[in-house]
Simulated assay, not measured.
Amino acid sequence: MHWLYLGVAVVFEIVVAIAAGKAEGFTNRKWTIVTLVSGAFGTYFLSRALLTFNVGVGYAIWTSVSGVGITVLGVLLFGQRLSWRKGLGIAAIIAGVVGLQLSGAA
C-alpha cells in the first residue's frame, strides 16, 4: 500500500508544479487554490507512504519521480525542449531511484 500512497503523492506533486506555473505568482485565484490543495493532498499521501519507507528514501523517490514526470509533461504538453543533457539527467535520476530501491531501504 505504501507504493500506492507514494504514487498518489507523486501525481499531486506534479499537479502542484503545473498549477504553480499557472498561478502567476498566486495572483490567479483558481490556480492558486489548485496549487495549495494539491500540495496538501500530496503531503498527506507522502506522510502515509513514509510510515513504511525510510524518510530519506521515500522523500528522495517522491521528489525524483515527480521531477522526471514534470519534465516529461513539459515536453509533451507545453512544447519544452528535451536536450540530451536533460535526458542524461533523467537517466541519472532513474538510476538513483533504482539504486535506492535495491538498497532494501523501503
Rank of each mutant, 00 (worst) to 15 (best):
I94A: 02
Y59H: 15
L36Q: 11
I18C: 09
I14L: 05
T27V: 09
F26D: 03
I94R: 03
K22Q: 06
I70M: 07
L77R: 11
G89S: 10
Y44T: 13
A23D: 01
F26M: 07
W84Q: 14
R81A: 12
I61C: 03
A17W: 04
R48L: 13
S66H: 14
L76C: 15
G21H: 01
R48T: 08
F78K: 01
G79Q: 01
S64Y: 15
A106R: 00
K30M: 04
V57L: 12
I93M: 00
V75F: 11
A60K: 08
G89F: 13
T32H: 13
V8Q: 15
V37H: 10
G7L: 03
W3M: 07
V15L: 08
S64A: 08
V75M: 08
I18G: 04
G87N: 10
Q80K: 13
R29D: 09
A17Y: 02
G99L: 03
V11M: 05
G69N: 04
A106C: 00
A49R: 10
Y5K: 08
L102R: 07
L88I: 13
S47W: 12
G104F: 02
F45P: 03
G42C: 15
W84T: 15
G56E: 11
R29G: 13
G69E: 11
L88T: 13
V37W: 07
L50E: 04
L50K: 04
I94H: 04
A95G: 01
Y59P: 08
E13L: 06
T35C: 06
G67T: 04
V75W: 06
V97W: 03
A91Q: 02
T71Y: 05
V15F: 01
W62T: 13
F78R: 04
R85I: 13
T43V: 12
T52Q: 09
A60D: 13
Q101C: 13
G56L: 09
F78N: 01
S47Q: 11
L82H: 11
T52Y: 09
L76H: 12
V11E: 00
V15R: 04
F12M: 01
I94F: 10
F78S: 10
G21K: 09
A106K: 06
G87R: 07
W3K: 07
I94Y: 00
V75P: 10
G39N: 14
A105Q: 10
V37E: 03
G96Q: 05
I33T: 14
L6W: 14
G74A: 10
V11T: 06
G39R: 04
F12R: 05
G58I: 00
V15C: 03
F53I: 00
S83D: 10
V10H: 02
G21S: 05
A105R: 14
W84D: 13
Y59Q: 15
V72E: 02
G79V: 05
